[in-house]
Design a protein around this nucleic acid. Structure first.
Lengths: 252, 252
DNA sequence: CGTCGCGTTGAACCTCATCAAGACAGGTGG
DNA sequence: CCACCTGTCTTGATGAGGTTCAACGCGACG
């Protein structure tokens, strides 16, 4: 299941280096980082990368593939907390209490680079920009979560799904993928869980968007036909009817 | 409005020092921190502490009082992202992009200690435990947000409100306040915004909880009468009626 | 070829949002 | 001091949006 590999590709020569690493490192610093990131993990689809309550030893940078994290409740319910794609960092939730607070599962066969926290901290004392880099990534995660909160707190189902698609498309575009096409690696149920909806609502909403020719849906593969309408749908406060308040006719 | 004070109380002698500061600092390190935290701000109720898109210069540790942060959307809608009480740290959202991504408002007359980021970073290079401390607080914020996500994603209104109360009570108890009494500093609307509900639903749910004698409500002051039931309500999958499905009588 | 996981679609129900009216407290001005 | 206003909270009536339950289609896999 979990295969360990001595790493053959170094960080300094990594294809997606820009996504993981701070910029402006000296050659020596880069060498130090190469030394630190010495193991890589292959994770098969469905496998767990780390588990809630386990001691926090490592952060994981995704080289290839896709993950979900889930919050699990005492009563067994689980909710998808986030999806992560290549170049993103997993495990930040573990820092606070020295144990992970989420479960992380691979949504497809994936590869991650292992960053041992101890070594990372040691190195960060030398390479200060690295410390700041981690801090920024954490802050970024906070900002993302706030976005997600807003979505769950005040958006209708269609706006949620539209935002979700736009978000994924944007992140994948930063990785060089087409920005109007998307292969979903997660089920409708996982999407629903992430968006605070049931799988039926997700399915219905996809169908509705397809009927309006905003997107084309072929099971897991999505093609955006009218980006503008998709964005409108994500912003979508009231589009159905009246802009100015009608029906408030009072004689003063 | 915003009054600046030369600080008279130092961190080392601060009443709530344990809430803000890492433990195990040497006297010299403590001195350094005292020097860094040299300004304090008084903020009146309703005033804004910082604003979205403004350059990120400082973190703020709350000495006394209570704040809310809001996410504001291009279209003018705002949602409460979080509430903060004394001893907690505001502004972490700003680190990622060097500008704040939330607005922060005082819910009552408050005092905060100003931590200039530049100085904080400089000092953190020396006092490594401080760097880690900030990292932990950030990770903690991430974990909190995940909780919040779960709440918005998969809980019914009564469970949301119960969780909200328990959360606040717990945090205030850590500050030495009674753990069965609570003075809400925010309106029903703000609570609703935070919980993804309307103010009417918040009000109705409070009333319902009061009618069941789980809590006593006197406008903003809440007293918990049956903590166990409150916790049940927060966990609450199904308690209202049938354990086994009734009313599905079909002859097979 | 049957089974299983995943997705779609329909129908009934339920929770919560929306709209509306009124109570109450605190603050202001006459 | 009272009248008035404004912000906050409560409560009721109504309906829409989303959940729940159920049936079915489809492709992958043994």
């Amino acid at each position: 299941m979990l295969e360990l590999h001595r790493i053959e590709t170094t960080c300094s020569s990594c294809r997606i280096r820009d996504l993981c690493m701070p910029v402006g490192l000296s050659t020596t610093q880069m060498k130090q980082i190469d030394n630190m990131v010495s193991t890589r993990l292959k994770i098969e689809r469905g496998e767990m990368l780390y588990q809630v309550n386990r001691p926090f030893k490592s952060l994981y940078a995704i080289r290839t593939g896709c993950f979900k994290t889930t919050i699990s409740r005492p009563d067994g319910r689980e909710q998808v907390a986030n999806f992560y794609v290549s170049g993103e960092l997993l495990g930040l939730d573990g820092i606070a209490s020295n144990q992970y607070t989420c479960n992380a599962y691979a949504l497809e066969d994936s590869e991650v680079c292992v960053l041992h926290v101890q070594q990372l901290n040691d190195l960060a004392m030398d390479v200060h920009v690295l410390q700041q880099h981690v801090q920024r990534i954490m802050s970024h995660e906070i900002v993302n979560d706030k976005e997600h909160l807003f979505l769950l707190g005040s958006m209708k189902s269609d706006a949620r799904l539209a935002s979700f698609l736009i978000n994924l498309l944007t992140r994948l575009a930063a990785r060089g993928q087409a920005k109007d096409e998307l292969l979903l690696r997660m089920t409708r149920e996982e999407i629903g869980s992430y968006l605070g909806l049931t799988l039926e609502t997700v399915s219905r909403t996809f169908s509705a968007m397809a009927k309006k020719d905003i997107i084309a849906v072929d099971s897991r593969s999505i093609k955006v036909l009218q980006p503008q309408l998709l964005h409108d749908m994500a912003e979508h406060h009231e589009q159905p009817h009246c802009q100015q308040p009608v029906l408030t006719a009072h004689a003063p």
